[in-house]
Simulated assay, not measured.
Amino acid sequence: MSVSYAFRKVLQGGAVLALALPLAACGGSDTGDGDTREVAMTLATPTWNAGIASIAVSQEMGYFEDEGLEVEVILADSATTQAQQIATGQVVTGAVSPEPVILGHQPDRNLDLTYFMSYYKDNIYGLRVPADSDITSIEDLQGKTVGAISLASASVTQAQVGLREAGVPEDSVTFVAIGTGGQQAAAVENGQVDALALLDTSFQVLENQGIELREIEVPGTDALTSGGLAARTSDLEADRELYVKLGRAIAKGVVFSQANPEAAIELLFAAHPEARPSGLEDDAAVASSVSVLEARLANLGAEDDPYGAIDPAALQANVDFLLDAGELTEEVDPDDLYDDSLISDINDFDREAVRQEAADHA
């Protein structure tokens, strides 16, 4: 098993990070021996954490290596940044939320990205308030302050669109960036924010810290998907084998994590010690992170067979959501957003063998 190839790099705004890899249209390079191909992918998160443990599993268990790949993971600040990085060839793929992918298919955008596999099957974003808050509906947010990891987060977009759908003037609600982890907890405890527009995993972290939260329904979001692995359409056509290999290695990481989340967290901690919650004994740190990982796994469709297929109806729901919000100027055909031709080959592996590998992992 090789040492993890991931480097902790954060892309800020629309800036392009110069990589050591001169990625061409096919997105990668050989390492010199002709056997291993170096590529990069992107995830929208400021730090390594339990929510993306399955990707660390794919690295640490050698699933990428088994496919002849050495994968560098680039951490980005938003899906918009991710879309820019994929579109400019700086990375070959990323787990991207639908907004920039859909908007990129508008005639004036020409950002031709296509999903080839699901990752966030269900909607990972949401809106919650402290359990004792007098806020009971999204309409009650008028005049209130909502905290988010970043103002560029898709959670903010969804909340803002939900406000419009509910007839709440967008400028009557203030959105503020409250970062991650302890910053989020402090923002709630000191009354800096009245509500939170965050991710499934962020909500679980707060719950683990003893902060009880209550969900607030956001109109129009129930049927949404939070996206999947996207690539330039031309790259999918020119280098199909690369994306099958990437998808299969990532799928194995999800299956392993579902089968043994404790082992997945141990692998994450070994590769990325910064992902370990501070101030907790080892057992408590693992248990806390397992609960966060399980909150994410619930939205990944890990038990689906075949794994990674995207329901066109879910993409249509995302299109309709953006149309109703006035974000889209015209209809986008969901069939133009997703290429399902790789799913069969992505699933060409022995799931039971992976589950057994997870069960046997010490």
Rank of each mutant, 00 (worst) to 15 (best):
V3D: 10
K9A: 13
G13I: 14
G13L: 11
G14Q: 09
A15T: 15
A15M: 15
V16Y: 07
A18P: 09
L21I: 14
D30T: 13
T31M: 04
G32Q: 10
G32M: 12
D33P: 06
T36R: 12
E38P: 01
A40I: 02
M41A: 11
A50L: 01
G51Y: 02
G51N: 12
G51T: 10
I55R: 06
E60A: 11
E65N: 06
D66I: 07
G68Q: 01
A76Y: 00
T88P: 01
V91M: 00
V92L: 02
A95D: 12
P98S: 03
P100G: 07
V101S: 04
L103R: 11
Q106R: 12
D108W: 15
R109D: 14
L111D: 12
T114I: 06
T114E: 12
T114F: 00
Y115C: 04
K121W: 07
R128F: 02
S133W: 03
S133V: 06
D134Y: 04
I135A: 00
S137Q: 08
L141I: 09
Q142W: 05
Q142D: 12
A148T: 14
L151P: 05
A154V: 10
S155I: 12
Q160L: 13
V161K: 13
G162I: 03
L163R: 02
R164E: 14
E165D: 09
A166D: 04
E170W: 06
V173F: 00
F175S: 00
V176H: 01
T180W: 03
G182I: 00
G182L: 12
A185E: 09
E189N: 05
Q204K: 14
E207D: 10
I211S: 00
E215Q: 07
A223N: 09
A223T: 08
L224N: 02
T225K: 05
S226F: 08
G228M: 10
L229W: 10
A230W: 08
L236C: 04
E237V: 13
A238G: 12
A238K: 01
K245H: 02
L246Q: 08
G247R: 05
I250G: 03
G253E: 04
V254S: 06
V255G: 11
F256M: 01
E262D: 13
E262H: 03
I265W: 01
L267T: 02
L267M: 11
L268Y: 00
F269D: 11
A270S: 15
E274N: 13
A275T: 09
A275W: 09
D283E: 15
A284M: 14
A285M: 07
A287W: 09
V290Q: 08
S291R: 10
L293A: 08
E294G: 00
R296G: 13
A298F: 05
N299V: 13
L300N: 08
A302I: 08
Y307K: 07
G308D: 01
A309E: 15
D311C: 10
P312Y: 04
V319T: 00
F321R: 09
F321M: 09
L322I: 03
G326F: 08
L328A: 08
V332P: 00
D335F: 05
D335K: 14
D335P: 12
D336C: 04
D336H: 06
D340H: 11
S341E: 10
I343M: 10
D345G: 07
D345Y: 00
D348M: 15
D348E: 13
F349W: 10
D350T: 04
A353M: 07
V354W: 10
R355C: 02
Q356T: 10
A359W: 07
A359N: 05
